[in-house]
Write a protein that binds this DNA or RNA. Sequence first.
DNA 1: CCAAATTTTTAGGTATGCCTAAAAATATAT
DNA 2: ATATATTTTTAGGCATACCTAAAAATTTGG
Lengths: 159, 159
Amino acid sequence: MRKKTIEDYVELVYNLQKGKKIVHTNDIASALSINPASVTEIFQKLSEEGYINYEKYIGATLTKKGRTLAVKTKKKHNKITEFLILLGVDKEIAETDACEMEHILHPDTMDTIIKFVEVIKKCEITPFWLNRLKEYTKTGKLPKCPPELYQICTKYSKK
Amino acid sequence: MRKKTIEDYVELVYNLQKGKKIVHTNDIASALSINPASVTEIFQKLSEEGYINYEKYIGATLTKKGRTLAVKTKKKHNKITEFLILLGVDKEIAETDACEMEHILHPDTMDTIIKFVEVIKKCEITPFWLNRLKEYTKTGKLPKCPPELYQICTKYSKK
DNA sequence: CCAAATTTTTAGGTATGCCTAAAAATATAT
DNA sequence: ATATATTTTTAGGCATACCTAAAAATTTGG
C-alpha cells in the first residue's frame, strides 16, 4: 500500500470529526485497520506540524490550517471522482482512483480536469458526445457521425 | 518522493537498454540520482523476482517477464500522456503526471481512458468540442452553442 | 602487462512507518 | 467509590529504501 500522506490523515480526521467534537486514536485506527499505537505517533506528528490540536488521552481536532487542507483535499477528491464518473468509470472505482490521484496531480492538471467537467456539464452537445463514448466503450464501434452535424461542426471550428 | 515500484525500475532498465546490450548499476544510479550501491540492491531484488538477468560487476538485461512488464507499463504511460495532452495539459506536466498515474489507475479506468482517446481521435465533432474546452479554459467563457447544432445533437441523442 | 583510475559490491548505518506487549490513564458498573 | 474493563500511550522491534565508506573487481593508458 502507498505511504499515507498528511493530506490523507487530515482528510480522514475531517470526515470523522463530522458531528463529533473530538477524534480519538481508535477512530483512525479502526478506519485504517492499523494499530492505535501507530495513530498516537501520527497524531504527534500532525500536532507538531500544526494540523491538529492534540491532547494525550483526549484526542484530536483540526486546527484552522488542518481544516483548510482537509477541505481543499476533499474538493480535489470530489472533482476527480466526478470527472471519472463522467467518462464512464464505475462509481466505486472512480472513488478509489480519485483517492490516489488527488495526491499526485499537478495543479495545472487539476485545473484542466475541473474545466473539463464544467464544459461537459455546460456544453449542449456533450450528451451526444458522451453517448458516442459509451457506445464505443461497450461495442467497440463508433457510429458514423451524421453528415449534417459534421458539416456544422467543421464550419464553426474554423472560426 | 513516492516509493519507486518494480514497474518504475523495469521501465527504466528498458529505456536505458535501448541500443545497448547491458545496463550498468551506474546508468540507473545517475538516471535516478541515487547511490550505485542502492542500485545493486535493487538489481538483486529484480533478479530474484525474475525481471532481470543480473551478473555481479557485469550488469543487467531484462528477462522476457521484465520486458513484458516494461512494454505494458510504457504503453499505459503513453496513453495517459496522450490523454492529458488532449485535454489541454502542458506536455511536460502531462508526462510527469502520467508517470505517477500509470501505477495507480484501476485497469477499468485505464480502459476508459484508452477508449476516450480513441473516440476523441475518431469522432468528427471532437475538434469542435475540444475548441470549446480550450476556449473555456482560457477565457472562462463558453460561447453559446449554435442552435442548429444543438437541435441535431438532441435529435440524434434520443435514438 | 601492470599500475592507476573507475566501477561495483559489501558492510554497516539512518529514517520512517508500521508492529506488539505492557504500562498508564480513563471510563464503566455495581 | 472502587474494582474492572477499555482506551491510549510508551518502549522497543522489524522491514524497507535509502545512505556512506571502504573493499573488490574491472577497465584503461602508458
